[in-house]
Every structure is written in C-alpha cells, then in structure tokens.
Simulated assay, not measured.
Amino acid sequence: MIRGLYTAAAGMVTEQRRHDTATQNIANLNTTGYKQVESISHSFPNVLISAMQGGIVKPIGRMNTGVFAEQSMSKFLQGDLVESGKSTDFALSADLRLADPTTGANLPFDASGKYISDQGEIIYQPQAFFTVQDNDGNTLYTRNGGFTVTPAGELLSSGGYKVLGADGRPVVLNGTVDNLKVDEKGNLLDATGAPTGVRLGISIVTRPENLVRDGNGVFHAEDAQAAGIRYAAAGDNMQVRQGYIEGSNVDVTQVTVDLNAAYRAYEANQKVIQFYDSSLQKAVNDVGRV
C-alpha cells in the first residue's frame, strides 16, 4: 500500500512539472525566437519483488516504482517569419542536413526535426543561431534577431548581449543604422552594396540537444565540441532575412491538449492518494480497535 502511495505522489509531481512546462509555452506565444519546451518523463528503476516462505525465496517479478520528469527538451523547429521592416531586425531561415556516416546520404528528418536510426539512436537536425556574448565573455546562442544599435555603433541583442561576427569579435557598425544592409549570407554591405568584410556570426549547432536554455531567449553549450558547433559555411542551406523576425514555434493546439492532460492526470493521482489515505485510516482506527 505504501508503495502505491509513493507511486501516486511521484505521478503528481511529474504532472505538475508537465503543467508548468505547458504554461511556460503558452506564456511565450508571442516571444520572438522562442522555442517550445517539452517535458520528458521516465520511470524510476524497476525493483525485483520476492516472497519468502519457510526460508525459501521465490521471485515474483519486477515492479515499477513510479515516474519522474527527467528533463525538459527544446523543440528547435523553424518559427514563422514576420516582416517588421526594421533594418536591425534579422531572422534565420535554415534547412540544414546531416549525412549518414554509413551511406553518406542525407538523413530523412521527420516533421519534428529528428531521425531514429535502425539501432534506436535519436539524431536531431542541426540548427543555426545568432552568436552573442555576455559581459563575462561567455558565448551564447539565440534565434531572437531583434537587434539594436548603441550610440557607439555596437550591435546588441534584445537581451543586451553583444552580437558577434564570424571573426568572433563584436560587430561594430561604421555607418548609420538607416544604411545598414545585410545579404542572405550575413555579410554587411556598404552604401554601394559591396561587402565590408564583416559578417554576422551564424553558428551551426550540429547536435542542438546539447544546448542548455539560459532564459532571455539564449542558450549556451557546456561542451562546444560535443554540441558540434561551428560557424556557417558557404554550402550551408541557411539564409539571413533582414527586416524580419522569427516568431515563436509553440503549437497552441498541442500545448493546450498537454495542459489539460496534465491537469486530469494530476487529479487522478490525487484521488489515488486520497483512497490510500482513507484505507490507512481504517486500518489504524477500525482494525486496531477490533
């Protein structure tokens, strides 16, 4: 009975986290460059149940001890591009591919941006990010291209981070904001349309599942090599769209369903706990009195 009580309690905690995740997604429906979060649940390790009778142990079988929300995964799908008309607004449009190491053919990623190999390995589609830097010199990654320009000409992200160029240094504009022109590869152009030699630092993250969400629309990589981070190359199927911003990729319908499902599952586990509580009360009071 006590095992069932703990299992139901673990279910309540898990559903509370699922509910909080869905609420977070709904709250960021209109956040530029926001990536939907999904709560991943796993079971606790199974335990082996045995019965002892007359000094002889007889195995009964395995029993699961509950569920827990192990982690939150970001869904790095392309959000809708919205035209803003501002010269300092940028959006990334990318459809990056990854070759199968065995056959050399491009992996067929599904609509959710992942591929499951014959061995059961999950491989996520590479993603492109703007590269920014905080005041401590840490490199961060974002899809929010709503930039601003300081009086000194520094290009800053909406969170106040310095936008880095392909050379790893902060981008500083030489001309006025009105004359800011950027081509599809991220090259800054002069008044005649010629490249200035400065290019936005667009990072390609080969394994985006290794990125850690920091808030303020930015991510960081604890191990850049494990995440397979590099700057964009000429052959990458990626474009910079000036005068556009990327909207949130939250699926409103799916998130609403998840929210209601989490609420109902939480209620179900709550009723189970109430049942166990009532049973224990009878065992202590009524059976004890007999």
Score class of each variant (00 low, 15 high):
Asn138Trp: 00
Pro108Lys: 15
Asp167Cys: 01
Ser74Met: 14
Ile40Thr: 12
Ala111Ile: 04
Arg143Ser: 14
Lys75Gly: 15
Tyr115Leu: 06
Leu156Pro: 05
Gly153Pro: 02
Pro151His: 01
Gly145Thr: 14
Gly146Phe: 05
Asp80Asn: 14
Gly79Met: 06
Met52Pro: 00
Asn106Ser: 11
Gly79Pro: 09
Ser41Trp: 07
Arg97Asp: 06
Ala128Val: 03
Ser50Thr: 09
Pro59His: 02
Asn135Met: 05
Gly137Asn: 01
Ala152Trp: 00
Gln71Pro: 00
Val149Trp: 09
Leu98Trp: 07
Gly159Cys: 09
Gly85Glu: 02
Gly61Gln: 08
Leu96Arg: 10
Ile123Leu: 12
Leu81Glu: 02
Arg143Glu: 14
Ile116His: 10
Leu107Glu: 02
Leu98Pro: 08
Pro108Cys: 12
Leu48Glu: 13
Tyr141Asn: 01
Thr150Gly: 03
Ala105Asn: 15
Ile123Phe: 05
Ala152Asn: 03
Asp95Phe: 01
Pro126Leu: 08
Gln119Thr: 13
Lys162Met: 04
Asp95His: 05
Ala111Lys: 07
Leu92Met: 10
Ser41Glu: 11
Ile49Lys: 03
Gly168Leu: 03
Ser117Arg: 05
Gly165Ala: 07
Gly137Met: 04
Thr139Gln: 02
Gly61Pro: 12
Ser39Phe: 06
Ser158Lys: 04
Gly168Ile: 09
Ile123Gln: 15
Val57Tyr: 14
Lys162Tyr: 09
Ser74Cys: 07
Ser41Pro: 07
Ser87Met: 11
Ser84Gln: 13
Ser87Thr: 15
Lys114Ile: 04
Asp100Gln: 03
Asp167Gly: 02
Arg97Phe: 07
Val149Gly: 06
Pro101Arg: 12
Gln71Tyr: 05
Leu77Asn: 12
Val47Arg: 05
Ser41Phe: 11
Ile49Pro: 00
Thr142Arg: 09
Ser50Trp: 00
Thr103Tyr: 13
Arg97Lys: 10
Phe109Gln: 12
Gly165Glu: 03
Val149Thr: 03
Ile122Leu: 11
Arg62Ser: 13
Ala69Pro: 03
Gly66Gln: 01
Thr88Ile: 10
Val67Phe: 10
Val67Tyr: 03
Gly159Ser: 15
Ser41Met: 11
Gln53Glu: 11
Ile122Arg: 14
Asp80Phe: 04
Asp167Phe: 05
Asn144Gln: 08
Ile116Cys: 12
Pro59Lys: 07
Pro59Trp: 02
Val163Met: 06
Ser117Asn: 06
His42Lys: 12
Phe76His: 13
Gly160Arg: 08
Leu92Ile: 11
Gln133Pro: 02
Lys58Ser: 13
Ile116Met: 10
Ser93Val: 06
Met73Gln: 14
Ile123Glu: 10
Pro101Asp: 10
Tyr141Trp: 06
Ser157Val: 06
Asp118Ala: 15
Val57Pro: 08
